[in-house]
């Protein structure tokens, strides 16, 4: 409490907001410095890509129970999960090659 006498000289309506602003500016600049100078803070903020899922109608399957393709990271590889739980790892070709495989393609 030995600093209490500062308020005999500094008006609280000036001193208190100044003090709080100084702490905020200090805290903000430290966070900014850490954000700029580390790799793990931006990585933390970026997070991991959520596995995108595509639902595929399984002919003859129970209505509403589709196979699901879980893409991990890139769109080229994924895991197909059949309604009965069986899975398969798949690697997708580029769109141009796939077109050639489709029935009726010239």
């Amino acid at each position: 409490m030995n600093n209490a006498k500062m308020w005999l000289v500094v008006k609280p309506t000036v001193g208190v907001p100044l003090f709080l602003t100084a702490v905020a500016v200090g805290s903000f600049s430290v966070h900014l410095a850490v954000l700029r100078n580390t790799t793990w803070v931006p990585a933390f903020l970026q997070g991991k890509p959520k596995a995108k899922a595509a639902s595929i109608e399984v002919p003859g399957g129970v209505p509403g129970s589709n196979a699901v393709v879980m893409f991990q990271g890139t769109d080229a590889a994924g895991v197909v999960v059949l309604p009965d739980g069986r899975t398969a790892r798949v690697t997708f070709d580029a769109p141009a090659q796939t077109a050639a495989l489709l029935p009726g393609a010239k």
């Binding site: 409490m1 209490a4 308020w7 005999l8 000289v9 500094v10 008006k11 609280p12 702490v23």
Partner: peptide, 25 residues
């Protein structure tokens, strides 16, 4: 009453809150 408009008791009362807030921070 000092230039800031406070008496010593008021200054110490205010400073107690400043210290408590700093501890919470």
């Amino acid at each position: 009453v000092w230039p800031s408009g406070l008496t010593l008791r008021e200054a110490e009362e205010l400073h107690r809150h400043i210290i408590d807030g700093t501890r919470v921070f």
